[in-house]
Design a protein around this nucleic acid. Structure first.
Lengths: 257, 257
DNA sequence: CAGTGGTCTAGACCACAAC
DNA sequence: TTGTGGTCTAGACCACTGA
């Protein structure tokens, strides 16, 4: 075991024991150096590790603060699509969010993990529609939503790369063109943010993104669009109910509805 | 802008441009030091940042390797509970997994974000049932599942803290005791792993955990158990279908079923 | 405005796995 | 075996911000 890992483990245990409750600071660097009879690097390496785990956050002039873990707000995915005059919503909370930056539309190569969903070769060109949504009162972004549309579709329907796509947005335009009724599937996953995402969403170090990746397809299965929505994983969770047959004792059959 | 951020940004751009494809190595530390006319620390700080983002992984004697992002396998949550002679399953993929370590049962304080779900004070005592599930052939863990049960329930039903809980597991024991039919709700979120989780799941640095937090409650709403399941967020995603009324043009009503 | 963490230099030795 | 990244020391100065 190396020194910095020992220091990190000791601090982790102290934090778990409640010796340094959330909001308080752990000993300053010089104190940790003295306590472990070592130089500054091992101490800083240990703190860097705890920071990457999301446990602490160093703040200049104040010390290294044990982070609060805020109560998560819940995004309920009821598996129902909502719609109002502005467009489609896949949960009700999103209806309260508004753009806090102007949406942008550009063309570029399809990202690695979107390519397979759209049935495209890696690097194929797609339309990229970026939106930054958030609280209109504070201007703080809470959600980054990016749409990827195959360039081939745009040549048929140039409105797909327009800044304004009209009532109902691109989904209505696609259905107008005969690709409807659109079917959606969603998958939830997670990754660490890049610097731009971290800045826009004010993600402290060590906090991942929660991603909702939604594929829109025609009834025949042709992929039309992928929407990649990212939120702060520490502030949000995605919930849904689970059903089962209402009997006092569950069935022994394989599938209990 | 500081030097190490410039170096990180330059490397990020090079990787995105495809100059260093997945599996290849970026220039070695000494080369980056020369290219940016600087010492070793800024170079290492930049690489540490890219590592925390999950973009690269330094490997001794080989160099700093651009990471592959493996195709995600999908956990389908059909919102149906499955059951066989061994117990309950909330997706079919989990049925192929087996314990790769002996399950452990202990008592301890309830973790911060579980307390609210169980309607407990922070620090209240709970039964903690830990399971490490994985591929029985390789012994590699793919899922960490921890159950938290209020200690008060255990005093009434001591079997809840037994190593063997019998057919159907704790859910059947709870229903036997009149707490059924149990109702479940799930929420999906994410956080960075601690060192134990990272080791068991072989998580490279910069890869978060995907968490499925499931609450079991009695019909009257009494919380009975919380199950916290963690998987590698880079290898797994959680999917479900979305339904809508099958019309060529969506309704204009608020809720489109 | 003082003291904290942030950045950077120069140098040394270590450990490990690819060659 | 050897060269890569990993760890650690000692020291210097900077930048920001909360007391």
């Amino acid at each position: 075991m190396v020194l910095w890992q020992d220091i990190a483990e000791a601090l982790r245990a102290d934090i778990a024991r409640g010796e340094y409750p959330p909001g308080s600071t752990i000993p300053k660097e010089t104190e940790l150096m003295a306590a472990h009879r070592t130089g500054r690097d091992p101490v800083r390496r240990a703190i860097a590790q705890l920071t990457a785990e999301g446990l602490v956050e160093p703040i200049r002039r104040r010390g290294t603060v044990v982070r609060h873990h805020p109560a998560r707000r819940r995004i309920n995915r009821s598996r129902l699509v909502y719609r109002d005059e502005r467009g489609y919503y896949f949960d009700q909370i999103a209806q309260g969010w508004r753009p806090v930056q102007s949406p942008t539309v550009s063309r570029g190569p399809v990202p690695y993990d979107i390519a397979a969903l759209l049935d495209l070769q890696p690097g194929a060109e797609v339309i990229i529609r970026d939106r930054v949504m958030g609280d209109p009162a504070t201007g703080q972004a809470t959600q980054l939503a990016t749409s990827y549309i195959p360039a081939a579709l745009d040549e048929e329907l140039p409105v797909l790369s327009a800044t304004e796509t009209g009532s109902g947005g691109i989904y209505d335009r696609l259905e107008d063109a005969g690709y409807g009724p659109i079917r959606w599937t969603e998958a939830i996953t997670s990754r660490m943010p890049g610097p731009v995402e971290a800045r826009l969403l004010r993600l402290p170090p060590g906090v991942p993104l929660l991603r909702i990746v939604r594929l829109a397809a025609s009834p025949s299965g042709q992929p039309l669009e992928v929407n990649d929505t990212r939120v702060n994983a520490e502030e949000w969770e995605i919930s849904y109910p689970i059903s089962r047959h209402a009997s006092a004792r569950p069935d022994r059959s394989m599938e209990v509805h």
